[in-house]
């Protein structure tokens, strides 16, 4: 019986022709849009998590402490409270780090007459001071010390990034929802046309005593197949775009956001997209009207 229902669904898909194909295309577009925003948001989420974890406050000093007095200075800084760890970075070490970061262009550093970089202390806030307000207060306390030239850092830009990620998620959901609605309507239209085309079959089915389930299930399966096909094309397209963009995108992400590798969906996330597409299609198939009830 199930084989028969599948055969009928395939026959209906063929009958759906261009309308069925455009329904698949709309499902592809809706899920591709949703998926693109999702994959962007996933990677941005990783950036946010990574930067939250790496949160540092950098205290730039007016002058390098005299040899043997660095520990004394660190103790003074620690006394302001809300600090988990500290590391003193001398002018020489800062220059070394810059040289490393410049890579191929490190020779530029050799042209400098003097070392322009200030000595600094990298401060990791204690967990209770890691909130935007806590970090702001810590920065303020550190700024009041006479040895301190400037204090940089805080969670505000990370929080702004997180806010941007949430905005991206919302835009993705909104665009995806509008396109999903269009996709459902397209599947419903395609299925309604099929219903008209198979009016005679349905009449015979009802007359000979087929249950409504047997009559409607091919429509459901047809919508499901359209949805699944659309989702598979969307996932395939997104993966192709990801692979194509990766060589250009990765160095940029690494340099600007410190993200070493852009990731694609995990198998379970791919399954969610495929399942979503199948559900969209099946729902569209079930919404179709046109058959006369028994």
């Amino acid at each position: 019986m199930f084989l028969f229902l599948i055969e009928e669904a395939v026959r209906d898909l063929r009958r759906g022709g261009r309308v069925a194909a455009s329904a698949v295309l709309l499902i592809t577009l809706s899920l591709a849009a949703l998926g693109a925003f999702w994959v962007l948001s996933l990677n941005l989420g990783r950036v946010v998590a990574q930067w939250r974890d790496r949160l540092r406050v950098v205290v730039y000093l007016r002058e390098e402490p005299a040899p043997g007095t660095a520990d004394e200075l660190l103790a003074k800084l620690e006394a302001v409270g809300g600090i988990q760890r500290m590391r003193y970075v001398s002018k020489a070490e800062a220059l070394q780090t810059l040289r490393r970061q410049l890579g191929g262009q490190a020779s530029l550093v050799a042209e400098l007459a003097t070392n322009p970089l200030p000595p600094s202390v990298e401060v990791t806030p204690a967990p209770e001071a890691s909130t935007p307000a806590g970090t702001r207060a810590l920065v303020q306390r550190l700024s009041t010390l006479p040895e301190v030239e400037e204090v940089q850092g805080g969670t505000e830009w990370v929080e702004r990034l997180a806010e941007f990620q949430r905005l991206l998620q919302r835009i993705g959901l909104a665009v995806g929802a509008v396109l999903a609605l269009a996709a459902i309507l397209a599947v419903t239209t395609a299925t309604t046309l099929v219903l008209h085309a198979r009016r005679q079959e349905m009449e015979i089915m009802r007359l000979v005593g087929a249950s409504e389930m047997v009559i409607r299930l091919p429509l459901f399966l047809q919508g499901l197949a359209q949805g699944l096909a659309g989702a598979a094309v969307a996932v395939g397209g997104l993966y192709a775009a990801y692979r194509l963009a990766l060589p250009a995108l990765e160095p940029l992400l690494s340099f600007t956001l410190g993200l070493p590798r852009a990731t694609f969906f995990s198998p379970s996330e791919v399954a969610v997209l495929l399942g979503g597409g199948a559900l969209l299609g099946a729902f569209g198939g079930l919404l179709a009207k046109g058959g006369r009830p028994a």
Binding site: Q200, E201, E203, R206, V208, G209, S211, A294
Partner: peptide
């Protein structure tokens, strides 16, 4: 009941003026 109509129709064979064959 509506859900039992198919059972009734399985017991009945029907022939009409137009043969109603699927073309």
């Amino acid at each position: 009941r509506r859900s039992n109509i198919p059972q009734l129709r399985r017991a009945i064979g029907m022939v009409f003026q137009d043969a109603k064959l699927l073309p």
